[in-house]
């Protein structure tokens, strides 16, 4: 089974920022720091476990109410600071790097009472707003990226990077509950996933869907070598440069080479709707 979440998030946050503390006033589960990546000054964000979380259902690396609103706050303050000045001179929009190792959203009654859907929406909104404003938004998936946790933290990026590692898990739901809800055994689900690519839990299959910018060969994600850290830094810098020259929407995800095959139905719908729109 996959390893506990959170270890990798912390490791990579430290490796890329040389910091490990939350910003003043933020919960211990949200790490945010500004650090140089390539020749740019980026803001890096990561959600990590906090065993003493005020909200118990968000203590193992889940994205809960506090995590989502903290991310949104820390993204929006940069968007605001980088808005074109009164003189009209263009400010270079700083990149955001979301380091992702989230086991899920927080599954709690209090979370629902307090409207966690809006918290999640606010974080996704902040990331997307940053992207549309011209900030490169890069996501580095170092561990798990599951369901609402990933929608909240990371899935709005211009470019997605992930480690080619067996414990990297990008999915709509963990294997056991997904099997139960679709009335299958885990073995049946695994067997189906061999032919039905979007069901697969293997990041190498995920890469075939055309959503990823790059799969990175990192063999020790919990204890990365200096070479691996430098490889990741370069990949992020390259993704930032690529995002700066590309469109600010998410079309690259269904226009990519892999998507031509894997997302034929998406492309067919897009073509048909466009054709019929003005008839």
């Amino acid at each position: 089974m996959s390893k506990p979440t959170g270890i990798r998030g912390r490791v990579w946050f430290k490796a890329l920022t040389d910091q490990e503390k939350p910003m003043p006033g933020d919960p211990p589960s949200v790490l945010v720091a500004d650090a140089p990546v390539g020749n740019e000054n980026a803001r890096l964000l990561c959600v990590v476990p906090d065993p003493n979380s005020r909200f118990p259902c968000a203590s193992h690396g889940e994205v809960g109410l506090e995590q989502a609103y903290t991310l949104a706050t820390r993204i929006r303050e940069i968007i605001k600071a980088d808005t074109t000045g009164s003189a009209g001179n263009e400010i270079k929009k700083r990149p955001f790097i979301a380091i992702v190792d989230v086991k899920s959203q927080a599954y709690g009654r209090r979370e629902e009472i307090a409207g966690i859907h809006l918290a999640a929406a606010a974080a996704a909104d902040a990331y997307a707003t940053a992207r549309f404003a011209g900030h490169p938004v890069i996501t580095l998936i170092v561990g798990q990226a599951i369901s609402g946790g990933f929608l909240t933290h990371g899935y709005q990026a211009n470019r997605l990077l992930a480690f080619a590692d067996d414990d990297v898990l990008i999915h709509a739901m963990h294997k056991e509950p997904a099997a139960r809800i679709t009335r299958r055994t885990v073995a049946q689900l695994e067997s189906l996933a061999k032919t039905v690519t979007p069901l697969s839990y293997d990041v190498r299959d995920y890469a075939k869907l055309g959503l990823l910018y790059k799969l990175l060969p990192v063999s020790n994600p919990e204890t990365p070598s200096a070479d691996e850290i430098s490889l990741v830094r370069n990949a992020i810098a390259e993704a930032i440069a690529d995002a700066r020259i590309g469109p600010t929407d998410l079309r690259n995800r269904f226009e990519s080479e892999a998507a031509q095959t894997a997302r034929k139905a998406t492309r067919l719908i897009r073509a048909r709707l466009e054709e019929e729109w003005n008839q």
Binding site: A124, A128, T129, F132, T182, P198, L209
Partner: peptide, 19 residues
Amino acid sequence: LQEANLGLAAVAEIISSII
């Protein structure tokens, strides 16, 4: 869930397009 990762990806794209 039968289209798991393409469903999740679609939701991310929907959110972006609404914004």
